[in-house]
Nucleic acid binder design. Structure first.
Length: 321
DNA sequence: AATCCGATCAACCGCGATGAT
DNA sequence: GATCATCGCGGTTGATCGGAT
């Protein structure tokens, strides 16, 4: 027997959402926050299944969505992230604030694929189209710089030290060691600078394949392959993020076996080697909904609206040093 | 004006992961 | 440990639109 349906199909609307439905969903989430998608439709008076509500909110109604065309910088970032992560659209979206996985996926299939093909590049392997792909090897991206945590413990903040994986850190395209994050005080991007680190050579792991297809040329010397990946990884890496120093059982379990966790496994060693970079980057995660008055603030907890769907915090306030 | 066709993107579907019991 | 409910992800579908014929 197959899986039971996620909701009762008979009395649910399907297809395009009406303005009235949108407004009901927005109003409900403003008051109650995200979550409990199963029960939300009934509570909000919507004849939709919870999945449909979640999708509509995440992909279309969320207030922080960036509408409009993708910029050239976003294009290039998507291409680089895809070369590292493959079709992990939610992970890619996590690195493009205001963009959704669905949007990026559609954009990839309709624009970027063609763009790469016109450049003579295979969109799946990110290698020249005329290359012969015969063997499967392992490639490991290398971080340009590794930062494991932002430390909020100073300044008496009750928020924990956040792993960089929780931040929407964007590497500044102009410099090698500057990262940006969303600053709630002025809705701008705040830059932080980290020391440039030199890494020892990294050996490929037998069981970690971080490429989408894993195919490379037979002729290419292994050392050359590694060098190529070093070059690619000028793109930062929040991908290089380490785990929190004190890990809970649940986070240990939930992070297992994902593409990001594989990257973490690879780069966690670097974090241990170089420790944390704290003094230059002290910021506090803040709740935008509380700031805007959508939600009452009664604790240091961030409301669900102010976390990305992938759990990343969206907004930060720099703490005075 | 009618039809065709490709491009776009919102929405759906199935499935794996995860958490609760 | 088994089962069930729920969530989130990635692939796919289908409605819509604009340009070409």
């Amino acid at each position: 027997m197959g899986r039971s349906p996620c909701c009762e199909k008979a009395h649910t609307n399907k297809g395009a959402w009406t303005k009235e439905e949108d407004q009901r969903l927005i109003d409900y989430i403003r008051v109650h926050g995200e979550g409990c998608w199963r029960s939300l439709p009934k509570a909000a008076g919507l004849h939709r299944c919870g999945k449909s509500c979640r999708l509509r909110w995440i992909n279309y109604l969320r207030p922080d969505l960036k509408r409009g065309n993708f910029t050239e910088e976003e294009d290039e970032l998507i291409i680089k992230l895809h070369s590292l992560l493959g079709n992990k659209w939610s992970l890619i979206a996590g690195r493009l604030p205001g963009r959704t996985d669905n949007e990026i996926k559609n954009y990839w299939n309709t624009h970027i694929k063609r763009k790469l093909v016109s450049r003579g590049i295979d969109p799946q392997t990110h290698r020249p189209l005329n290359e012969i792909t015969t063997t499967t090897t392992t490639t490991v991206p290398t971080p340009a710089a590794t930062i494991s945590h932002l430390d909020f413990s100073s300044n008496n903040s009750s928020l924990p030290s956040l792993p960089v994986s929780k931040l929407n850190l964007m590497k500044n395209s102009q410099t090698n060691n500057t990262y940006n994050y969303n600053n709630i005080d002025n809705f701008s991007t705040t830059a932080i600078t980290v020391p440039t680190l030199n890494y020892p050579k990294i050996e490929p792991l037998e069981d970690v394949n971080c490429t989408s297809s894993g195919t490379t040329t037979e002729e290419e010397p292994p050392q050359q392959q590694k060098q190529d990946k070093f070059d690619e990884s000028e793109l930062n890496l929040e991908l290089s993020i380490g785990l929190k120093p004190v890990q809970t059982e649940s986070t240990r379990v939930s992070s297992a076996n994902t593409a990001e966790s594989k990257l973490q496994q690879v780069h966690g060693g670097y974090n241990q080697l170089f420790g944390t970079v704290q003094s230059a980057m002290v910021a506090q995660a803040v709740c935008l909904c509380c700031q805007l008055g959508y939600q009452s603030s009664n604790s240091t907890e961030l409301c669900l609206n102010c976390k990305n769907s992938n759990g990343l915090y969206r907004y930060y306030r720099p703490l005075s040093s």
